[in-house]
């Protein structure tokens, strides 16, 4: 086999992981909320809030961890608004989520006007610079993707694994799933339904905020208007694509990251296939994540397998006395 091709593929995978990390964070955030029964369409808004807050704190304080925490908290703040309305006040989840996106994008772009002239101090860049894990980064193909990355990328993978363990191997995680499937039954078991929903929505918002921070502070490294540019919506799609499984979310996030980087790499390159000239348009390639999500939705419907279905009580309000 040609060594050059493998090295090129490894570098491409590395790029895909970087491109897919904000998606992974957004998807994990969405999964946390949806497992507790709340469909939050505000991922885009929370990512924007996190992105601008993280960038601002990073530029002003120069403290990388503080910036990430601030970005995460900004996402949680957005989630708190959503939780108060949908959980306590039982508002419509779809409309509230959309509103959160409008609100979050508005406020982030507003605050961001002052950030366009700011630059990130060197301390931030060096803290989040790619590190290579000795030995492991030399693995063929996946070495660079997983072990020669910014610590932020690795944090994403770690969180996905932890969340999987939480949902599948712990009692607390089982309780959350019960709330999402049947809050009435969970309530009868003595689980505090609204508390569970609040905690997971806030944690989900934190992850979305982190995803936004990664995007502005680590990936793009400057602020621009509408920085998240629809990634939050892809994350909403990825939650389904991953069938609510955090481990599949890693693959989904990186796959869609790869699709996006293919668009960037192949821009304006022409290739010939069986004598025909083919131009791969980046705009058409950009459709793929959305089309694939629809395909997955349809396949889930066709198969009707139990584990492929969304949480039973997704996007419905729970009022104790309606039980």
């Amino acid at each position: 086999m040609d060594i050059g091709w493998i090295a090129a593929a490894a570098m491409f995978l590395q790029l895909a992981a970087q491109c897919g990390t904000p998606l992974l964070f957004g998807t994990l955030g969405g999964i946390l909320g949806e497992k507790a029964g709340n469909l939050n369409l505000g991922v885009e808004g929370m990512m924007m809030m996190g992105a601008v807050t993280g960038y601002y704190v990073a530029a002003v304080s120069g403290h990388p961890v503080l910036a990430a925490l601030a970005g995460g908290l900004a996402g949680s703040l957005g989630a708190l608004l959503y939780a108060v309305i949908t959980v306590t006040l039982q508002g419509n989840q779809t409309v509230t989520g959309l509103t959160l996106t409008i609100f979050g994008c508005g406020i982030a772009n507003y605050i961001g006007k002052g950030c366009t002239s700011m630059t990130l101090p060197a301390t931030i860049r060096s803290f989040y610079a790619p590190i290579s894990v000795p030995g492991l980064s030399k693995l063929p193909l996946v070495g660079k993707m997983l072990f020669e990355q910014s610590n932020f990328v690795m944090l994403g993978i770690l969180l996905a694994i932890l969340i999987w363990i939480y949902f599948n191997k712990t009692r607390a995680g089982l309780n959350v799933r019960m709330v999402g499937e049947n809050p009435g039954a969970a309530d009868a078991c003595g689980i505090h339904v609204n508390l569970v929903k609040y905690l997971h929505l806030l944690a989900g918002g934190f992850l979305c905020g982190l995803g936004g921070t990664y995007l502005s502070v680590v990936y793009i490294t400057r602020w621009q208007n509408d920085l998240v540019a629809g990634l939050g919506w892809i994350a909403v799609a990825l939650v389904i694509f991953a069938i609510w499984n955090p481990i599949r979310a890693i693959f989904g996030g990186y796959l869609f990251g790869a699709l996006r980087s293919i668009g960037l790499v192949l821009q304006n390159t022409r290739m010939t296939f069986l004598g025909h000239e083919i131009r791969l348009d980046p705009q058409l390639l950009d459709m793929l994540p959305y089309l694939m999500t629809i395909l997955v939705l349809v396949l889930m419907g066709v198969q009707k397998k139990k584990e492929y279905q969304p949480p039973g009580w997704l996007s419905r309000s729970y009022y104790r006395e309606d039980r």
Binding site: I102, I107, Y110
Partner: peptide, 9 residues
């Protein structure tokens, strides 16, 4: 963008 914020609120 203030319009978006007000709409949201």
């Amino acid at each position: 963008d203030v319009a978006g914020v007000i709409q949201g609120v």
